[in-house]
Amino acid sequence: MRVIRYVEDSRVVLAAVTDDNAVHPLPFTEFMDVVREAKRHQLSTFRYIQTLISGKRGIEKEVAELNLLVPVVAPEVWASGVTYEKSREARNYETSEKTTGQETCYDRVYHAERPEIFFKSTAARTIGPNAPIYLRSDSNWQIPEPEVGLVITREGEIVGYTIGNDMSCRDIEGENPLYLPQAKIWKHSCAIGPAIRLAETVEDPYNLQMTCRIYRNDQLVVEESANTRQLKRRYDELVSFLIRDNEVFDGTVLLTGTCIVPPNQFTLQEGDRIEIEIPEIGVLSNPVQSLAQQAVAN
C-alpha cells in the first residue's frame, strides 16, 4: 500500500493507493497524522488505513490524473553519502585531490564505522512530482542522484519508503569536500515522491530495483539501473547515526545514498526531464530549469 498527497479544488487530499491502484481519500491531510493516529489505536499504519477504507470504493480518477504533491511535508531531509561502491568511484573521479594509489577521504568513509550523513533540505526547498528541479548558476557539472528515502519518526522508526533525488554539483564538491553544503543545497535541489510505500508492506527493502532515465529534447540520453542489495550499510545503521545526540522530527526523510551516477562527461541542461522509478513506489518525474529562467517566469 502507498500513500499520496494531491490537490483537488484547492484542497489538499491525503489518500491511500491499494495494490490494484484504487485511490482512497483519507480523513487527514498529512501522512504523519495517520502514523500518530494508528499508534493511538495500537495498530500499524497499514492496518489502521485498512480500517478506514474497508468496504469503500476508490475515486474514479487514477493516480496519473492527479495533481500530486510531496507525499510527506518533511521538516528536514538528510542524506547519506558514499554508501555504494559506485558512489565512491564517482567521488574519487571528481576530486581534485586524488593521487594514484593514495587513499582519499571517500575511500576512508566507505570503510569507516561512522557513515557520511549531511543535511540536505528543508520543507521549503523540497519539491514533489512534476515540479521543476533548478540548476545551480555557479556549477557546470550537475547530476541527479536517485536514492531510496526513509520516512522516519522522531524516535527513528522507519514508517515508509519514498524516492529521492539528491541533486549534486560534482565540480563544486570535487574542488573541495568542504564545499559539500554548496554542492548539495540550493532552491529546488531536492525532490521526493511520488508516494510513500508503507514500511510493513515492503517484503525486502534490500531488493528494490531503481532506474534513472534522463530525457533531452524528448530523447532518452541516460538510462541506468541498480538494486538496493548493493548498499554497503543497513538502513537502521544510517538512522541510528542520524538520531544520535540529535533532535529529529516526525516525517524527517533520510536519503540513503546513490547507486546510479550518469557518465562522467554528462551534465544536466535546462529543458531536460529526470525520471526515477522504483516499481513498488512509482515514478518521480521532474523537469529541469535554470534559476535564471525561474526568475524571469516570476
Rank of each mutant, 00 (worst) to 15 (best):
R2T: 04
V3M: 12
V7Y: 11
V12P: 10
V13H: 10
V17L: 13
V17W: 10
T18Q: 09
D20R: 15
N21K: 15
F28W: 01
E30V: 07
V34K: 01
L43Y: 06
F46T: 14
Y48R: 09
Q50G: 15
S54G: 09
K56D: 03
R57G: 10
G58K: 13
G58C: 13
E60Q: 12
E65I: 13
P75C: 09
A79H: 06
S80E: 00
V82R: 02
Y84H: 04
T95H: 05
T95K: 04
E103M: 14
T104F: 07
Y106P: 05
D107Y: 05
V109I: 14
Y110P: 00
H111K: 14
I117M: 02
F119H: 04
T122Q: 10
A123K: 06
A123S: 14
G128H: 10
A131E: 15
W141E: 09
I143F: 05
P144A: 02
P146I: 04
G149A: 09
G149Q: 05
L150A: 00
E155C: 02
E155D: 12
Y161H: 10
I163P: 00
G164Q: 04
C169A: 15
E173C: 02
E173R: 01
Y179V: 08
W186V: 06
W186C: 04
W186F: 12
H188L: 03
P194R: 05
A195K: 00
E200W: 08
D204S: 10
P205R: 01
Y206L: 05
N207P: 07
Q209C: 08
D218F: 07
D218A: 15
Q219P: 06
L220A: 08
L220S: 03
L220P: 08
V221M: 11
E223A: 08
E224T: 09
S225R: 11
A226G: 13
R229K: 15
K232L: 11
V239Y: 09
L242P: 02
R244D: 12
N246D: 00
V248F: 01
V248P: 04
G251A: 02
T252H: 05
G257W: 03
P263N: 04
D272L: 05
R273N: 10
E277C: 06
I281E: 08
S285W: 00
S285P: 05
V288Q: 00
Q289V: 07
S290E: 00
Q294Y: 12
N298I: 13
